[in-house]
Design a protein around this nucleic acid. Structure first.
Lengths: 188, 188
DNA sequence: TAACAACTTGAGGGCCACCTCAGGTTGCTG
DNA sequence: CAGCAACCTGAGGTGGCCCTCAAGTTGTTA
């Protein structure tokens, strides 16, 4: 079906993804596409040959990063204590989110009619994430009614908090701490 | 210094504010200014005569609404129980925020380098708000270290949650409940 | 190496919102 | 009511970004 790309085409595509990754990560997913093309050393036309729109480019950039979620979640499941597994998973995840404006922006901008495939990607890793949640719930340390949609909302709200933290991790950590205390079901 | 406006100028200014209030409230603070002018029955040039930029218009629209905060806060202080005073204040405030896209948008978009004077306005009512906080803290029902900046962060994060709730108040109420549980310092 | 298809190029058209300003209109004052 | 300032008007300039496409270039296959 899909015949192999010509050598130069493949090279250009890789350069484009690399340039987009850099710019999206640093300045958000709103950077003019001309700038992405220029940084890739390629014409704007070529960019559009490979990616019909901005969303396609974002979709090409994000999945790599989302893969890290799997590792984080696996690590969390391996932890002895379900609660600390759950919390370190969240802290790790938001650390990643705070370090990469592309991710944070994608979450912020994924307004109700989400344009890109981020939700789909999140669904992919959803299985593992659901495991982390389930383990904490079953152990009775997480509110029994805390579901994936609650986590989704937390991610979105934290994206906003992170954007306001301006690089100071302590700021969003503090806020996250409040919420975690709120969803903790253990005995104090 | 500032001599009184001419009669027609005053009328136009009022019409502009009214039109902007309607449009901002319903469709967010991003509506094209041409549309605001048209709805006010005034030319775009007149709009710029009165308000040099969008921020000035927003500043003219919001303060009315922020005034309601004072009433809410006063009501909260009048409540017998400091904790229920605190929580009903917050629920009331976010209800207002959920009902008015102008407010919610202004909060969401007031990115770190905030353009409009919303923060200043919040500071104005800040005295009363600080009272509500202080009362709850002094009564030992609110974390002793929960300050105004924490409240500010909560407001911002809730703005995001509200935007995602798409009119379903139960959604943001649920999330707010988590956070409130987290900052509650009473004995369970 | 010929010859085709795949790919690239970048000027340019479209769109939309922002904002200006020269000229016309209107309230106001004496 | 004259005459001046204050005010209004809206066509049009500006800028940014989006996206297209006809013409040129380059990899590839035979």
């Amino acid at each position: 079906m899909t015949r192999p790309l010509r050598a130069d085409a493949l090279r250009n595509r890789e350069r484009l993804v690399a340039a987009a990754t850099e710019l999206f990560t640093g300045s958000g997913v709103d950077v003019p596409l001309d700038r992405v093309a220029k940084r890739a050393g390629v014409s704007i036309g070529t960019l559009y040959n490979h990616f019909p729109n901005r969303g396609a480019l974002i979709d090409a950039v994000l999945p790599d990063r989302v893969g890290e979620l799997d590792r984080l979640a696996a690590h969390a499941c391996a932890a002895g204590d379900p609660w600390s597994g759950f919390t370190t998973f969240l802290y790790g995840m938001f650390e990643m989110q705070a370090a990469d404006r592309a991710i944070n922006d994608a979450i912020l901008q994924g307004r109700p009619p989400g344009p890109t495939a981020v939700p789909a990607e999140c669904g992919r890793g959803g299985g593992v994430v659901e495991q982390v949640l389930g383990r904490a719930r079953d152990a009775g340390v997480l509110r029994a009614d805390f579901g994936p949609s609650d986590l989704g909302m937390l991610v979105r709200s934290m994206a906003q908090v992170i954007a306001w933290s301006e690089g100071d991790d302590e700021v969003w950590r503090r806020h996250l701490g409040f919420v975690l205390t709120g969803v903790w079901a253990g005995r104090s």
